[in-house]
Amino acid sequence: MIGDRFRVEGRVAVVTGAGRGIGAASAVALAEAGADVALSARTESQLDEVAERIGKLGRRAVALPADLSDPDAAAALAERAVAALGRLDIVVNNVGGALPRAFLDTEPAHLENAFQFNVGNAHALTRAAVPHLLAAGGGAVVNVSSVMGRVAGRGYLAYGSAKAALAHYTRLAAFDLAPRIRVNAIAVGSVATSALDIVMSDDGLRAQMEAATPLHRIGDPEDVAAAVVYLASPAAAYVTGSVLRVDGGTDAPNLDLGLPDLEGPR
């Protein structure tokens, strides 16, 4: 049955940013597909709630709180996951982000921090995970990138640059780690997570964003979680180095931040 290829029975995944939103949905979806899951984020109480949901599915889950802005803490997750759950087969690099800023308000340090948080820490965990993935017979890495790594819009210089770098990191890492480890990414569009709380609570902003999205809706975390399961499972056994769009068809920013043109001598 083709549906069996989407199962990840007996495998262990580590998911970062797993306390809420896309990370939590991905962790639960992987458990529903048969995996045991190591969960990491800063807030232990959120991780405990997700772990409880996974436990009710009959799978094992362990909460591994960490400050994932620290590359050493990110790297340590691989060993912690194996110590808790016995092996490691799947890595989901979900944690990331950067605040929007106007061009002249974006310091070089903002770019450096965005790159480290979105790319450097993903690399730290992936690099540490490689020996464990190989010991388990191979594995899959899924990186969560963004539509802003592909399209241009004002205010997203640091975030978009970092997510574009993560997308190309995915392609390069896929070559480095083939054939035994597959590396893919998801370019996520506007999804109803805490990052969009302002939009979701404002009918006007939400209507603007929905109208500017070809599918005329904002995504659910489960939309992304389904793609995570696919890329992590044998269903994607012949897929590596790919960036899968889960963005409602977006080809331009669907929310105008209202940043004006620069003023200068005329």
Rank of each mutant, 00 (worst) to 15 (best):
G241Q: 11
L30G: 10
A195W: 10
R206F: 08
S26V: 01
L111Q: 10
S146N: 02
V37Q: 08
E44V: 09
G153N: 01
V239H: 13
D4W: 09
S40M: 05
L257G: 00
D72P: 02
Y230S: 01
P234C: 03
L157T: 05
V8C: 07
G58D: 06
G86V: 04
N118H: 01
A76N: 11
P108F: 00
L259V: 00
A25Y: 00
A98E: 03
H110A: 01
R150M: 05
R150I: 00
T43K: 15
V142H: 08
P234M: 04
R150S: 08
G120E: 04
A83I: 01
V147T: 14
Y230K: 03
A73Q: 11
G21F: 04
I186S: 12
A187L: 05
R150E: 13
A252T: 02
P179E: 06
R266P: 01
V151W: 08
L244Q: 10
P260I: 00
D202R: 08
I218Y: 12
P265A: 06
A232T: 01
A13N: 06
Y238G: 05
G264D: 13
A122G: 13
L172C: 15
R127H: 14
T213M: 12
A167K: 12
N121V: 04
V91G: 08
A66F: 02
G204R: 15
A211T: 15
R127L: 05
I181S: 14
Y156W: 09
S201D: 15
A173H: 09
V37Y: 10
T126N: 06
F6I: 14
D197M: 09
G219R: 11
V188A: 11
V62R: 13
G264A: 13
E222A: 14
G21K: 10
V239E: 10
L64S: 07
L259H: 00
K56Q: 12
L166Y: 03
G97T: 05
R217Q: 13
R80S: 05
R180C: 08
L111C: 09
Q116M: 13
A174E: 12
S201Y: 14
S145Q: 07
P65Q: 08
L30N: 08
L88W: 08
A38W: 03
G219C: 08
V188E: 09
A165Y: 12
V228I: 03
V119F: 04
V50Y: 02
V199W: 14
D220Y: 06
R101I: 00
V144L: 15
I2W: 14
V246R: 03
L215N: 11
L257M: 01
G23D: 06
V50C: 07
R127V: 05
R87H: 09
A195D: 13
E112A: 10
V50K: 03
L231R: 07
I218F: 09
D176L: 13
V119D: 09
G155P: 00
M148Q: 13
V50H: 04
I218K: 14
R87I: 02
R171C: 13
E52W: 02
G120Q: 05
D203T: 14
S242C: 13
F175L: 15
F175E: 13
P65I: 02
A18Q: 10
G58T: 05
R11W: 04
A165L: 06
G58H: 03
V91Q: 05
D247Y: 02
G264M: 06
V92E: 07
E263S: 06
V28D: 11
R101F: 00
V239F: 09
A173N: 11
P265V: 01
V239Q: 12
